Simulated scan of single mutants.
Amino acid sequence: MARPRKFVEHEVVSSASEVFAANGLAATTLDDLVRATGLGKQSLYNAFGGKKELFLRALSEDRAEAARAVSEALGHGDASPVERIRGHMLGLAIEFSRGDSRVSLTTRALVESSGEPDRLSEVTKEGVEQLAGIYARCLEHARENGDLPADADVDSLAMYFVAVTKGMELLGRTGVGRAALTAVALDSLRALGDRPATDPTSA
């Protein structure tokens, strides 16, 4: 009879995720993961298959959380779709300008992806496309409301906002402050024909 596991997989993945978010995949060692999770190297191999496999597992959970957060920010509400996008972008400017802001694993994977057709690149691309799909649905509502031209390419715009938000995340990580990130967020709205002159959160 197989011996029951004495750890909770979700807790191990969560602990590993924090290490990967801080260091990235390449710079994280097995010793780092052993210290963070409390499991031995052999136990990690037995349970997850290795460092990269554990990263992929953590990336999958991180993707789900990121998609949930963006869906909530852009979901239906009293505000118009464009106003929801504006609020979302300004909120990210604040979040990413905090010194303790955690880098998402999707962003880590984008930076570290070799571009080769391997599982990491595949999962990373799926994550980007999932986020773009959420933006596209909100943008489609904006087009239906007449806030975007009838011929607006919502898929291209959606990928544009994914690119901008991931860039803002990396800029924030390097110490770029709120004012600069807010300017990026407001400038990104020009793609929607929106030209706000000031940061409404500073009032």
Score class of each variant (00 low, 15 high):
residue 61 E to H: 08
residue 35 R to P: 02
residue 81 P to Y: 05
residue 21 A to I: 00
residue 3 R to G: 05
residue 81 P to I: 06
residue 86 R to V: 06
residue 7 F to Q: 05
residue 51 K to E: 07
residue 18 E to V: 08
residue 88 H to W: 15
residue 42 Q to S: 15
residue 47 A to W: 07
residue 57 R to S: 09
residue 97 S to W: 00
residue 56 L to H: 10
residue 93 A to W: 02
residue 37 T to A: 03
residue 56 L to R: 12
residue 15 S to K: 15
residue 19 V to I: 13
residue 45 Y to K: 10
residue 93 A to F: 03
residue 18 E to D: 14
residue 16 A to Y: 03
residue 10 H to N: 12
residue 78 D to W: 10
residue 53 E to H: 10
residue 33 L to D: 10
residue 44 L to T: 02
residue 50 G to A: 09
residue 27 A to L: 11
residue 37 T to S: 06
residue 49 G to L: 07
residue 52 K to W: 01
residue 92 L to R: 15
residue 24 G to N: 08
residue 7 F to N: 06
residue 82 V to R: 07
residue 71 S to F: 01
residue 66 A to N: 11
residue 67 A to Q: 09
residue 4 P to M: 01
residue 82 V to D: 02
residue 17 S to D: 00
residue 90 L to T: 02
residue 41 K to T: 12
residue 10 H to F: 08
residue 12 V to G: 05
residue 3 R to W: 07
residue 67 A to N: 08
residue 23 N to F: 12
residue 25 L to K: 01
residue 71 S to D: 11
residue 28 T to W: 04
residue 43 S to F: 00
residue 64 A to N: 04
residue 86 R to F: 07
residue 64 A to V: 09
residue 8 V to A: 12
residue 65 E to P: 00
residue 24 G to D: 09
residue 94 I to Y: 14
residue 4 P to T: 02
residue 35 R to E: 14
residue 21 A to E: 01
residue 92 L to W: 05
residue 27 A to H: 11
residue 23 N to G: 04
residue 31 D to S: 11
residue 15 S to I: 00
residue 97 S to T: 00
residue 48 F to C: 06
residue 49 G to V: 04
residue 52 K to T: 15
residue 47 A to Y: 12
residue 11 E to R: 13
residue 21 A to V: 00
residue 77 G to V: 03
residue 96 F to I: 01
residue 32 D to T: 05
residue 62 D to E: 06
residue 49 G to K: 04
residue 30 L to W: 10
residue 9 E to H: 09
residue 82 V to S: 10
residue 12 V to T: 14
residue 1 M to S: 14
residue 46 N to I: 02
residue 89 M to W: 05
residue 12 V to S: 07
residue 82 V to C: 11
residue 42 Q to A: 14
residue 37 T to W: 04
residue 31 D to A: 15
residue 24 G to V: 07
residue 29 T to E: 07
residue 62 D to H: 04
residue 13 V to I: 15
residue 46 N to Y: 13
residue 81 P to D: 03
residue 76 H to W: 09
residue 29 T to A: 06
residue 68 R to D: 13
residue 37 T to Y: 04
residue 13 V to T: 08
residue 65 E to V: 12
residue 49 G to I: 08
residue 20 F to K: 02
residue 36 A to D: 03
residue 68 R to M: 06
residue 66 A to C: 08
residue 64 A to G: 01
residue 92 L to N: 12
residue 94 I to W: 12
residue 29 T to W: 08
residue 49 G to E: 04
residue 71 S to V: 00
residue 16 A to P: 01
residue 95 E to S: 14
residue 4 P to L: 07
residue 55 F to D: 04
residue 8 V to D: 15
residue 97 S to N: 00
residue 13 V to Y: 06
residue 35 R to N: 12
residue 5 R to F: 04
residue 68 R to W: 07
residue 98 R to S: 10
residue 38 G to A: 08
residue 55 F to V: 08
residue 23 N to R: 15
residue 41 K to W: 05
residue 43 S to R: 15
residue 66 A to M: 12
residue 14 S to F: 07
residue 10 H to W: 08
residue 53 E to S: 12
residue 94 I to N: 09
residue 93 A to Y: 02
residue 11 E to V: 09
residue 27 A to K: 14
residue 84 R to E: 02
residue 80 S to Y: 03
residue 7 F to H: 14
residue 17 S to R: 09
